[in-house]
Write a protein that binds this DNA or RNA. Structure first.
Lengths: 192, 192, 192, 192
DNA sequence: AATGAATGAGACTTCATTCAT
DNA sequence: CATGAATGAAGTCTCATTCAT
């Protein structure tokens, strides 16, 4: 089922979707890249949508698993948040294309029944993060005068947006980015 | 030049582009919204691109002016950064559609010669922000162990992404968001 | 009726039709050239076709008159043919645009009911020329082994086609062209 | 590359372009003639232009080869000119459609970058013919008081224009036309 | 006379998808 | 597994023309 050929095609498609956007990438673009004719792609997939579905669901499955593991480790809120941030940044490299598609074509894909699961996953994730932040506030670790959900969204957006300018092998690896981000997030840029 | 009719059409188009994306919005969608035939739009604009151009350049012109004013006020780095953050959040409401388009269709539009000016403006803006941060570091106001450019990008992304979930009249107005963001940015979420 | 303004517009249109072809010239091209809006042209003409009609019928009226005068002068066949050739070349300058349109858009315009008169005029003209040639053959002035109609057509095509490369003020004026052509036509390029 | 299907479509298109003109022929006309939908044509060709390109370049390639062969045979100027005239008339039947398009849509096509090669080929051809005429003048075979280029143009125009009225199977075949034309061209219509 | 807005028909082209071979 | 041909729907844009002002 998940033959090597098929996976190869998915990877090619993912790269193109990331570069040009889902809509702007034609089935023919993908086929050209693979050196076959566009009609031949339909031996492997039943639609263009099913390709992007495969790309996105693969990513979401993995990030959800990572997040759950971080939560289930049962550490303190500060450590859990750090683990979540690191887990997110860790996907930047292996799932660069998927994240890019998610960011760029979100508003288009969200509108489709087929991708309702994306919104559901998002909600679940929001609850994990915001819950952890609120826990930290109750324990007196995080300031009480910030809004947990708002803060989560800002963190989330910042991380995923990094995919737009992050280039592998440019000195800044995802681990460094994660630590940098944690620093600012926990303590701000001010010197006290 | 900018007749009332024309401006009205631009506003309608902006709203649709923001809702469905530039590519997914058809010229007919816009015309329908305006109650005219699609061909009639070409009495006012040369092309679909020229409409989005008008939307984006209007936004960029204004934000650049605000940023320059904040810089030129010649206050300290902390006040200047705060002013920049507030200026950005202040555009959230009047330019919601333009910002959404910029965020969602960036990768598509960037590829086009016509929109090269967007990248140029972005570079100029990056220099304003990062320069101010570096100034603050030299003056011992901001931590030396953060990367100015990286920090700017994170801030920028966070602000513009707000457009994806921000809904006017939902209690959280842009001013509140700006102050919230400044708090986290300057001092972090930790309690020291 | 034939106001100066109107004639001016016809001249502008003729020039454009000659340059780009009737179909490729838009009503807006003409209006632009005149410095007005395309709709305003309809104050002067009821259609694009009526403009080209005016251009062509003006030319045909004149050439028919010239030809008839040449025939009616009642000279010998050789002089009459020379007079016809000269009459044709004489229109090259004043009716350059009309001739160009006739040549380039002939096949398109011929298909239209409105321009049936063009074909009728052509037939009448063919009869004048071919008749004169045949007369010359009967009088032993022209070779008997050439086809009168065929010869006429070759002459006609050659003359009108000159409009494609003839440029006023390039040394070769229409009178010179006519004499050159008559030389070749009467005696050939051989030296006997 | 040049599949049978494709060649068939090109032939259909050529016929239509010849009948109605390039601009007046719609892509749908061609598709209708072929019994397919207009969009399906784009499986075979990139554009309407590329179809006419194929038609014209096919013709030009062949005529250039014929002309070069006539020149390279190294005969005297009189024989060479006769060979050129015959070569041209010989294309009348097999390339009737292409020649018609070239004649009728010349001014439109010439304006396009893509068809710059047409003008270049024309220049090369002019040089072949005019060169041969001049050679004949130097050898005392052709009259010195005619302009070589001018004469070439008149001959060329006459030959190609024949396509407008020539109908295969009407008694006058291209070979007869060629001999008729050579007679007039070499010796004129006068009896000396 | 001219403007400004719009119509309506139709042009070329794109593209996801299907299917017989 | 892949090709080659085609479909069918839709998209952007053009343009002659109309008409109230």
């Amino acid at each position: 089922m998940a033959s090597e050929r098929r996976e190869h095609l998915v990877r090619l498609a993912a790269e193109l979707f990331a570069q040009k956007g889902f809509q702007a990438t034609t089935v023919r673009n993908i086929a050209d890249e693979a050196g076959i004719l566009s009609g031949s792609l339909y031996h492997h997939f039943d639609s263009k949508e099913s390709i992007v579905d495969e790309i996105l669901s693969g990513f979401f499955d993995e990030i959800m698993a990572s997040y759950r593991a971080a939560i289930d480790r049962g550490q303190g809120p500060r450590e859990t948040i750090a683990a979540l941030v690191r887990a997110a940044f860790d996907t930047l490299e292996p799932h660069r294309a998927a994240i890019t598609v998610m960011q760029n074509d979100w508003s288009y894909l969200r509108g489709m029944e087929r991708f309702a699961y994306l919104t559901k996953a998002e909600d679940e994730i929001e609850e994990m993060w915001a819950g952890t932040i609120r826990q930290g506030q109750r324990q007196g670790l995080f300031r009480a005068d910030i809004d947990a959900t708002l803060t989560y969204r800002m963190v989330r957006d910042t991380i995923w947006m990094a995919v737009r300018w992050y280039r592998p092998g440019s000195g800044l690896d995802p681990k460094t980015l994660a630590e940098h981000y944690l620093k600012v997030m926990f303590d701000g840029i001010n010197i006290h």
